[in-house]
Design a protein around this nucleic acid. Sequence first.
DNA 1: ATTTGCTGCAAATATGGAGA
DNA 2: TCTCCATATTTGCAGCAAAT
Length: 279
Amino acid sequence: MTSKKESSQKYPSDISDEEWEIVESIFEELEPYTTGRPRSSDLREILNAIFYLNKTGCPWRYLPNDFPSYKLVNYYYNKWTDNKLLENLNTALREQLRKKKDRKPDPTGAIIDSQSVKGTPESRRASGFDGGKLVKGRKRHIVVDTMGCVLVVWVHAANMFDGTAAREVIARLFLLIQSVKIIWADGAYAGAELIEWVFKQFACTLTIVKKQTGRQGFHVLPRRWVVERTFAWLGRSRRLSKDYERKPTSSESQVYLASSRLLLRQICNNQIHYKLATS
DNA sequence: ATTTGCTGCAAATATGGAGA
DNA sequence: TCTCCATATTTGCAGCAAAT
């Protein structure tokens, strides 16, 4: 809806000029000066291509011809996955948005949740030696702040024991941010052991938000609702509706990408519906 | 000499369709 | 629905380019 000057946007998934300015400065910070051969391709184009893929869910090979070669785009995608650039981009954007909303860059409250994602239909076909044993689909954990911004993503094979998974996610959260004092979670994370572990390890309270059968509606589970909304937003990126990625880290990148896109929209005020719900 | 960017090749793996 | 097979896609890697 931005009646921005000129359509520098060929596809709806392309980033606007305003958004690009923000991303560009973050990139300069995250990937500073290097020796070696200088880049000859256009960063913005590459990013647009990656966002296109993230949104539409098309295979790499099917990237439209007016983007740089899919090979090149894929090269950067893998690189940025390996060096955590996409993750850091998401973090930087989240800090910016929170500042804009007059909050501290790092939150003190967080909400955790998970979601199962289908792998391939022929999941039974034990596809051999990949160490990650990616059979039977994957599980996505996300931790968000009270505004619904994604803090941490973790993807792993779905057959992992839940308690173990929870520890790993929370450990990751504190690796990134130390400011969190309270985490809300659903029944899947219940268990005195875990709660105690979190408190001892990180001086943080893990609160289980229980479903109350008597009451319904959004009053009941206010914190949970925030994370559900984030999942719903993320689900609009088709690349996330199934797990196409071969490696879990690649899968995480796709989530960070979708999340970064949302954060950008909000930072640039491009009409985000803050209060849905009430109806 | 060393670092990073980019491309082409081919092995590894996924997808889709036929046939039972 | 399941298995098998042919074809398509992804990815790791080698190798050359362009910079300090």
